[in-house]
Every structure is written in C-alpha cells, then in structure tokens.
Design a protein around this nucleic acid. Structure first.
Lengths: 155, 155
DNA sequence: GTTCTTGCAAACCCTTTGCACGTCT
DNA sequence: AGACGTGCAAAGGGTTTGCAAGAAC
C-alpha cells in the first residue's frame, strides 16, 4: 500500500528532525502527519483543525499551528501564501514543485509544472551558498480574452 | 528628470485604468502614486500611511488599502506576501522581476535575478491563454554552513 | 443631484501568546 | 523529576467593513 508506506517514511523523516533539534516526539505531532496524508490536498490550519477534531482527534489550534510550522521547517510541508486570507499547506512530496498562475482580474488560479524552474533553483542556490529545499512561483496575468474572465465586470 | 517623467507615465497609466473601469480619479489616488515614487523601495500599507501623513497628506488607512489594491490590479504595483506579517508592495517598474531566496532556518532573504524566469513566464502564460504581467518566485533553502546561519540554534 | 469615495472606528480573520496542566524523556 | 508541549482563551497584528460626510462626475 504505497500511501501508508509514504506516510511511514514521512513520520520517520519527521522523527529524525525532531531528534536532531531536541524536540519531543509527541502523539499530537505524529497524528498531524497521519491526517495530512489522508487529506491529500491543499489545506489551511483551520481546515485541518476541523478535520482532525471531526475525526475524533483532540487537538488545539495552537498545536496545529505549531506542528505545521515544524513540518514546514523540515521540508515535509510546503507553505503557500496566496492573495488573501490564510496560509495554505500541502505535502511537498505530493505533486512536487508545481506552481501557480493567478489572474489579477478574477483571482482564478491555474496550476502548472515547468521543469526549467529546477535549473534556476539549483543555480541560484549554489551561487548564494544555500541548499535548496523548495520553491514557490506565482505568475500574475490577465486573460487574453477578458470576456471569458468570470469576475471581470467591465470592458 | 527621469524620476518625475516615470511618475507622470504611471499616473497616466493609472488614469486610463480608472477610466476604463469607471472608477473615479480622486486626489488621494494620485497622491498615493506620487509618494510611492518618492519612496522607491519595498513598503507595507502602514509604512505608506505613516509616510504620507507625516509628509502632510491627509489620508486614511482605508484609502491606502483600497488604492494599493487598485494599483496592484492594474499592474503598477507588485504585491508580495512573504513569510509572516503584512503584505509588501513595490513598483513593478523598479528593479523589474527580481526574486527572493529565503532561508527556512533563520528567515534571511536574498534577492536575485535570473533571466530564464522570463522564458518560463511567457511559455506558461501562452499555453494557458493569459497575458503575463508579473511574477513572484521564492526559493526556500537552508544554509550550506548551518553555523553561519545566525538563527540556527541547533546542530 | 446622484453616485462613488473617504475617514473613522469597530469588527474581523488568522495567528501567536500566557499560563496552568499534562506528557515525554 | 524536570523540561517541554498542549489546550484554552485572550491578545495581537493586519486588513476589511459600515456608516456618515465629502468629493467626483
């Protein structure tokens, strides 16, 4: 079963990170990884909070935020800050390194993947003396055909 | 004087946008462009509010936020949402298309420019049927030498 | 004159924090 | 046992909103 195997390797990766940083391996922290693997999509902190408590886990928002932060730091999660509202997270291993094009007229978000971004990431990180972990590319654009843009009220 | 010429062309661009969208050309809206041109750097909404009121303009936070939103929509401003805190803005025409590498251990931000991003932006926009206006690329990385990372307390 | 924009303050949302209790090592 | 993490609720920071007064059209 590849999903649970993946989940196990994530937990192992997280456990090693916690040990290295001398943080404790609490039940709540590992529960978060389990539930994120089940979700398998973008989510924000509150969605995860509701999902976990709805499912029977008892976990506070404070712990959710704290754990999401740890998971982002160790590279298991990718944290996106799109236009407004809350931060969004997703497993870095899920659909790796895809990016987003955002229509500035209507807010529509399209996903894409362009391999060339990897070269840029590696070149730049090397030049500046860093080890790359992840990236986030957003292209802001307008529709070629404004009439097809659902929230464009003028023109 | 190239700075004021640039400022004038921005105001013209903004005026055309407002007319096209049937928004009104108020004094406050054009004052914001003038002050942003003077600033010539990254800023957030509150910094602009304090700068303008300190300089003698009388403008409210509500108007600042509203105008920054319009200027972003019409492509004059670039809006960045880095890690935490407030959104940052800068003139899209100032140091065009530079990007950011962020250290996930200490939060340090490095700026860089890689021409190859332009090709990606154009290819992707074309494929998806959009006209590109701007982009924001963030690379998340760790220092090659963790000891040189000022906020890394472990390891 | 009508409609849109401004200014103010309160409301709002997301996130962080302080403290007492619980749990991992 | 001691130190760290959790849960709760309150505080915090940034942004948005409702409404009356003012400005653009």
């Amino acid at each position: 079963m590849p999903v649970s195997a993946d989940n196990e390797s994530l937990k192992k990766q997280f456990a090693e990170f916690l040990k290295r940083k001398k943080y404790r391996g609490t039940q709540e922290r590992f529960n978060v990884i389990d539930r994120i693997s089940e979700l398998d999509r973008h989510f924000n902190a509150d969605e995860l909070y509701l999902y976990m408590n709805g499912r029977g886990d008892r976990i506070s928002r404070a712990t959710i935020y704290s754990t999401l932060d740890l998971l982002t730091t160790c590279g298991i999660l990718m944290k996106h800050r799109f236009q407004g509202g809350s931060a969004h997270f997703e497993l870095a291993s899920r659909m790796p390194d895809h990016d987003h094009l955002i229509c500035v007229e209507c807010g529509r978000i399209e996903e894409f993947r362009d391999e060339r971004i990897d070269e840029i990431r590696d070149t730049v990180s090397g030049k500046l003396g860093f080890r790359p972990m992840a990236h986030s590319l957003q292209i802001f654009a307008t529709c070629h055909d404004p009439l097809a843009c659902p929230h464009n009220t003028q023109e």
